[in-house]
């Protein structure tokens, strides 16, 4: 990622959400993005996740310039290489846990039986075996987030993007989720990029990026950055 700018509005109303960010993230890293509200950390995350496109700058994902891809190619990139976890879980309401987890596989055209088996397996990985047919409103926040993790992992993507994954959870649940994420990362050798503002959560990462006013101001291991 080189010289990334994301600018909203024009002229006097211009807001520089990202103001020239240069960044390289290697395979297998566990990165936490921190910073105050409005510092551009979520914007940075959305651009990394190809949900949003930068106003200027160059973003190479595994050597491919993302700027040259169209809408559907970006969708395929997300489908095959990325898993998303959100602060508000973003599960489909009134749809069972296993159906929620199956969703990315449906878009990938995986056969019904295989799909069900893989989704069930993913739920088992996050410790939700037996809760397949529960709908989100029958699950606790921590369980919902684990369903979301299962959904993000079911396609076996090399990159997991988590936007405030513990923002809506209490401390005990947060720890549970983080331990699980870390374990999965080690087992599968995937990359995790996570936005958070909680130092206790950020400590699970190997590297912390600190954003202020759209600029990357600090970059280093937790010990060096967190007080």
């Amino acid at each position: 990622m080189r010289g990334i700018y994301k600018i909203y509005g024009t002229g006097a109303a211009e807001v520089r959400a990202l103001d020239g960010v240069d960044l390289t993230i290697r395979d297998g890293e566990f990165v936490a993005i921190m910073g105050p509200s409005g510092s551009g950390k979520s914007t940075c995350m959305n651009i990394i996740g190809c949900l949003d496109v930068p106003t200027a700058g160059e973003y190479l994902f595994r050597g491919v310039d993302v700027a040259g891809l169209d809408r559907d190619e970006l969708a395929l990139l997300r489908r095959h290489f990325m898993g998303f976890i959100f602060q508000s879980f973003n599960l489909l309401p009134r749809v069972t846990a296993v159906a929620n987890v199956e969703l990315p596989l449906i878009y990938d055209g995986v056969k019904r039986a295989t799909r069900r088996a893989r989704a069930t397996e993913a739920l088992r990985t996050v410790g939700l075996a037996g809760r397949e047919s529960a709908t989100p409103n029958q699950l606790s926040g921590g369980q919902q987030q684990r369903v979301a993790i299962a959904r993000a992992l079911v396609t076996e993507p090399p990159l997991l993007l988590a936007d405030e994954p513990t923002g809506n959870l209490d401390t005990a649940m947060s720890d549970g989720i983080m331990v699980q994420l870390d374990r999965i990362r080690v087992e599968r050798g995937i990359t995790i990029i996570m936005v958070t503002h909680e130092p206790s959560v950020a400590r699970y990462a190997e590297r912390i990026l600190h954003f202020v006013d759209g600029r990357l101001v600090k970059d280093g291991p937790p010990a060096a950055i967190l007080p």
Partner: peptide, 16 residues
């Protein structure tokens, strides 16, 4: 809209 956002994020194409 939110549901559509989720679907797009997990890899639904325009035509899907």
């Amino acid at each position: 809209i939110r549901e559509i956002g989720i679907r797009l994020a997990i890899g639904a194409r325009t035509r899907d």
